[in-house]
């Protein structure tokens, strides 16, 4: 690694002030699981690192009327073991437990996962399906961005040079809500997703009142599936509806080929993943 200055802010305010002063020359450091790899590969060359990992207040996971807010510095191990997440956002827990391996989950933060903006990141489809908002603070103040508006391309986001991701908030999943996250990788652990899918369905009187379906690793960013969501809306759960929706998911996938797999495989397999996830959560009412 090239030499760099090391700065250690004690608060979010101090971190933002440092970033505003240094601009592009500085990078935030959270768990380091993406950034240190890039530094070693000489893919990025910051003159200074602003280490966020000592800011305890950004690690909290808390609830406030109807929503759950996750501090950007919460690790995936924190998220995976949080009773609040288990109760009100368990699809994110399912995603957290798929990240790398225990050593990676202990270091990797949700803020770093989001800022890194990989279309294959496992923490991102769940927060799309949960309808999350991301709170950013910079020298010009605070803004809250819907997760769909945050990502603009692979590795690209609307985050400004002086902005820090503060927290990720989402409405609680309630009793009537069901959801899942599923991923397929090269092997069981430490594998980048070839395709992943997250869904949250709001059920009332045996019908789907609202659905949010998000796909990972099959487009330049994680994407929602508007056609599938419309198709599911107002319908009764049945095997044939799930099959129809799975076909629709495959048609909304916009996979490209890469070293990990072909586009045809990805478009197909994501429908299969969706169908499996749906059959799991509705196993009690399906034959």
């Amino acid at each position: 690694m090239r030499p760099f200055d090391y700065l250690r802010p004690k608060s979010a305010e101090e971190a933002i002030e440092m970033k505003a002063r240094l601009g592009k020359k500085a990078s935030f450091l959270a768990g380091g699981t993406d950034l240190l790899v890039k530094l070693k590969e000489d893919a990025v060359r910051p003159e200074a690192l602003i280490d966020l990992s000592f800011i305890e207040s950004l690690k909290e996971i808390r609830e406030a009327d109807g929503t759950v807010a996750i501090g950007s510095l919460a690790s995936y191990a924190d998220i995976g073991s949080s009773p609040l997440i288990e109760r009100f956002g368990y699809i994110l827990r399912q995603g957290a437990l798929e990240i790398g391996a225990p050593q990676i989950q202990n270091a990797a933060t949700i803020g770093g996962n989001i800022a890194n903006a990989s279309p294959a990141a496992d923490g991102i489809p769940p927060i799309y399906a949960l309808g999350a908002h991301i709170t950013l603070v910079g020298k010009e103040g605070r803004r809250v961005v819907a997760v769909e508006d945050f990502f603009t391309g692979p590795g690209k986001t609307v985050l400004k040079e002086d902005e820090l991701i503060i927290e990720i908030g989402f409405p609680k999943m309630m009793e009537q809500d069901k959801g899942f996250f599923k991923k397929i990788g090269q092997r069981k652990a430490l594998a980048i997703s070839k395709a992943s899918v997250a869904a949250v369905l709001h059920i009332a009187n045996g019908k789907i009142e609202e659905a949010r379906v998000a796909l990972g690793a099959v487009a330049p960013t994680v994407i929602r599936c508007p056609k599938t969501e419309t198709l599911l809306k107002g319908r009764k759960i049945s095997g044939s509806l799930i099959e129809e929706a799975a076909k629709s998911v495959s048609s909304e996938s916009m996979a490209i080929g890469d070293v990990r797999s072909t586009p045809e495989y990805r478009d197909y397999v994501i429908g299969v993943l969706f169908e499996r996830g749906m059959r799991n959560i509705f196993s009690d009412i399906l034959p």
Partner: peptide
């Protein structure tokens, strides 16, 4: 008490 890969941690971070 938490396992981490020490090749991805800066020495400065264990202060």
């Amino acid at each position: 008490g938490k396992s981490m890969n020490s090749c991805l941690v800066l020495a400065a971070q264990v202060d």
